[in-house]
Design a protein around this nucleic acid. Structure first.
Lengths: 351, 351
DNA sequence: CATTGGCACTCGGTGGAATGAAGCGCTGAC
DNA sequence: GTCAGCGCTTCATTCCACCGAGTGCCAATG
């Protein structure tokens, strides 16, 4: 895959070819290209160029006498160098924005993002749930369930609530637990979860002897409550949209695809690859490393809160999706989701 | 749809026809029937009988010279009168039983039930989540989140935890909340949720003037915490199994089907119809009231805890599913799920 | 009267041939 | 380098003939 210098004409042709193929879904012949490319050349000339492009592996003829179809490499070059991103339509932006209602919970916002992606792009949407490392812990409480089981309640951002059942070695009475919670709240509330965790660990290691037994137990308990992080997960929306695309209509493949969405593990793997990138990323066909993604592409963008990337969202669809439309939508959705999550951040501090 | 008296021979023929169609998925001709029915009659005779059956609307010929295919009415008669349920295979029962691991949470058990149904029957499984009216409330706690928002924590069966955020008219301080929780726990813990609710309402109405302000507030709070029941929901598993059946392979229908599973509302409606029946129930084709169920059947069975029906589970598949295999599986799964939920019921009382 | 064998008829599916359209490669001219 | 033209390849569609499965009807039979 050495990168190849193409003259302007070849680039124009490749671009119009791909655009046409994305629109029509059928091999594009030289005559069509001659008409639509805007260049003033004859089909014969175009045929020559196409032969070159085929030699470079950018296009491919399904059979001797059919038009050309872009290859994965062709798409790659296209999105990297030839694609003109449509300026995001103002109405669309507003339409998306309106789906993120102001008072919504994190879960609602994520759901909304998934459904926006899927409905606006008519593809399958997916949202990597945010790591909650950097969300602020506003309160922690313990509740004795039974002899050795304690329910830890984490209130995050003053809104989200998480429960965890802890199995303990000895029995704690409710007043004890109350005290520990008070201690932890006094010291740690308002910090982000991973900071809290770091502090707890640090305190446990270094200043152990300076603390009385209660605080020590409190720290231990706190660490255990925070430590067992939920297994990160991914949210998928509108996978049935993919039934609309003929090239995926092979029942067998389709089943594989839908099951992958169900399992989610592989989707997760793809999204995890993107979490570092700070802008829109595109995987074409097998670039994702999954064979059954042969005819699929993935467009993702990370979203961030407080300048820190907390998750990724994106869409999956046929390789011939209209990137010019999809890319800005994914981009905007990521931004707006980030913004929505952000604006909701000022938790009313309690106590 | 007057019920029709069929002589033994006609019944035998209808049965073998349907059995054959379920196996092969293709119209059944008179010769095949003559061979497989076990009756010692010629194809010609069978043709006469088939003409009668067709007159009664039990079978139908897709075109002049094809074999016969059962109609919805035919299936109905078949499952009502002709079907011989296979005795549940002991190994299968054990296989299913083993999927309900002993210590699992309610959610896990329900998931397991869905996945068992889908994998064993190779159809789409669904489980109506149990109404939690009759599960015992073992503990209730309140946690002040911010000025007017209180988190109510319901511990059910000593295991399950439910959170609800209540928006209140005035500010309550944590000690106040603690008192109210104590009061409620003392009076109500261990009762089933709907009993609790009834008690709360009764007390509020009748003995209002005998209670001090605190208890009154406590009762109000308790009522609000319990009152907003989660919207009941349904769990769907393995809907991609349906992609295996040719008769549903029409992409368009398939999409409708999968989207229905996604939406779940219509599935819910079907399941709700079954919640009263105390045994396996079967809907064939349009009997469910949904046109797009044309070629689908639904087999359901309620499951119960403590003798009280708390939910329904079942499968959806093509009309020509093998009822003799599916029915006992659905039946057993329902029983085993009930048993598993039951054995887990003895909540360790706290406090 | 129920049963049966026979016969003509009707469809749907299959396979091959014919036709047409789309499009390419190549060549030779400008 | 560009282009028109020619011949070739391939796929898709159509048409037709044919086969097989299966029916409906009828007349014969016990």
């Amino acid at each position: 895959m050495q990168d190849i210098q193409l003259d302007t004409r070849a680039r124009t042709l490749l671009r119009t070819l791909i655009e046409s193929y994305i629109r029509e879904g059928q091999p594009v012949g030289s005559r069509t290209l001659a008409r639509t490319s805007g260049l003033n050349v004859s089909p014969a000339t175009i045929r020559n160029v196409m032969a070159d492009l085929e030699g470079m592996g950018l296009v491919h003829a399904p059979h001797t006498s059919a038009g050309r179809v872009p290859t994965a490499a062709g798409y790659r070059l296209f999105v990297d160098a030839l694609l003109e991103i449509r300026a995001p339509n103002r109405e669309q932006v507003e339409a998306i924005e309106s789906r993120f209602s102001l008072g919504a919970s994190t879960q609602d916002l994520l759901d909304a993002a998934g459904s926006v992606l899927s409905s606006v792009t008519r593809l399958a949407g997916m949202v990597r749930l945010p790591r909650n490392r950097q969300v602020a812990l506003s309160q922690i409480e313990f509740l004795r369930l039974s002899e050795r089981r304690v329910l830890a309640i984490l209130v995050i951002d003053g809104k989200e609530v998480q429960n965890r059942v802890l199995e303990l070695e000895r029995d704690y009475l409710q007043p004890e637990l109350q005290n520990m919670a008070n201690y932890l709240n006094a010291h740690l509330a308002g910090q982000s979860l991973h900071v809290v965790r770091g502090q707890l660990l640090a305190e446990m290691r270094s200043v152990r002897r300076d603390l009385d037994a209660m605080m020590l137990a409190a720290i231990d308990l706190g660490e255990r409550a925070i430590g067992e992080d939920d297994p990160d997960d991914v949210l998928v929306a509108g996978e049935t949209q993919l039934l609309n695309y003929d090239e995926l209509a092979d029942i067998h493949r389709l089943r594989q695809l839908l099951e992958a969405f169900h399992e989610k593990r592989e989707i997760l793997a793809i999204l995890d690859q993107c979490i570092r990138a700070d802008r829109v990323q595109i995987f074409i066909g097998r670039e994702s490393g999954l064979e059954w993604f042969e005819h699929c592409s993935v467009v993702t963008a990370p979203y961030s809160v407080d300048g820190e990337i907390v998750g990724v969202l994106g869409v999956v669809g046929p390789t011939r999706m209209s990137y010019d439309r999809v890319i800005p939508i994914v981009d905007i959705t990521a931004r707006l989701l980030g913004a929505a999550l952000n604006s909701r951040g000022e938790a009313p501090k309690t106590r």
